[in-house]
Computed example of a mutant assay.
Amino acid sequence: MASRRNALAFLAAAGLLAPLASRSRAQGMRFFRIGTGATGGSYYPIGALIAAAISAPPGSRSCDLGGPCGVPGLIASAVATPGSVANVMAIQNGRLESGFVQGDITAQAYRGLGAWTGRTVPGLRAIANLYPETVHLIARRDAGIHELADLRGKRVSLDEPGSGTLADAEMILAAVGMAPGMLQLRNLSLGPATQAMTAGDLDAFFFVGGHPADTIVELASRTAIEVVPIEGATTARIIAEYPFFTTTVLPVDTYAGQELPVPTLSVGAQWLTSAQQPEDLIHDLTVALWNPATAALLQTGPRRGRSIQRATALDGISIPLHPGAARYYKENNMLP
């Protein structure tokens, strides 16, 4: 009870609660966590915005009176995690109610493919596809890395265990015949990787996420970097083996010093939950996600958040929708 009183006191001080305590008691309070990624990536700030959008703390004014347009009585929060793989495992084990997961990791985990062989996660359910995530291969400009083959013998970070970036980097390198022993491997998350590169202790790193990534923007402002292309026959080999990848291009000047468009790969970022979550709750979350007020809120955040559109909510979904989400899409004529 003390934690509940403290939470309500905080929300009241923040001006989020109406003065009617009776509404608070009537509505109750529920908590809902969204596993994101490292704080320096794109998942975390977008997760924080979505958490704010779907929340409507006990005692809040109604949406039509200027209050939050989320789920009544719900307090959602974004939780920093290592990334997609860790989020799948946390959803499976009940440590998180939901999480953001790359589309390729989603497919593999649900079907028991790739790194998930022998440990399927059949209880995964989708809420929505959010936006495409871009594979970044960032190198120090003086490291002499201009294509994947140039990584041989270099100090390269594939990201930390549990991240979708690590899983994707391993798949990409395997598809081009680059064995782990050919590299001086590191397992650093995005922030520590950029710090190591600035210090001259790292030659290159992979990152999979929305662009521009703020942490890489900051890196490029103080260190000369090269955005390494993944293209041509290399791309064809990778997609032939891993068809959930698609081609994309990082536009000119995505990062300082990038004078040309850079071809690379992308995968979808998806919001997943467990089949055990209540249907009504996930339905109401989906309603809140696609409320016009949420779209307006997302316009204030990272550029990737601005590309989250209801029209692409079902793109690339390769696992069953949660029944609550499916009910929303049927109600809105997006599903038969």
Rank of each mutant, 00 (worst) to 15 (best):
G210I: 09
F32V: 03
E133I: 00
D280R: 15
M89N: 11
G200H: 08
G70R: 04
T223N: 00
A90D: 14
Y43A: 15
A52F: 08
P261S: 05
A224H: 03
G232M: 06
S24V: 05
A233E: 08
T106V: 15
M334W: 07
R306Y: 01
P292Y: 03
E218V: 05
Q270R: 07
A26L: 08
F206V: 04
G70M: 07
T264N: 07
V228I: 10
D104R: 09
P229T: 00
L130E: 01
D150H: 13
G153E: 13
M171D: 02
N332K: 09
P251G: 08
Y329G: 01
P261N: 09
V88R: 08
G103K: 02
E279I: 15
A313D: 00
A275L: 13
E226H: 14
E170L: 11
L96K: 08
F206G: 03
D159S: 15
L124P: 04
D150Y: 05
I282N: 08
T254Y: 09
L219A: 00
A143V: 09
G59C: 06
T254E: 12
N291D: 13
E147S: 13
E133S: 04
S163R: 10
G118H: 11
V227K: 03
I238T: 10
P57E: 04
L158E: 02
D168L: 00
R125A: 15
A311R: 14
T286V: 06
Q184N: 07
L265S: 01
S274D: 11
D201P: 03
T312P: 02
Y328P: 00
H211S: 15
L250G: 07
P72N: 12
T248F: 10
R61L: 05
R141Q: 14
L190H: 12
P19S: 03
G162H: 12
A224Q: 05
L65T: 05
L289P: 00
G67L: 10
A174L: 10
G144S: 04
D150A: 12
L8E: 07
I138C: 01
L96F: 05
G144M: 11
P180E: 05
P161I: 08
V88S: 07
A174C: 07
I319Q: 03
S189A: 08
A143T: 07
E226V: 13
G118W: 11
T247K: 14
A21V: 07
L188E: 15
E97H: 14
V79M: 14
E259N: 11
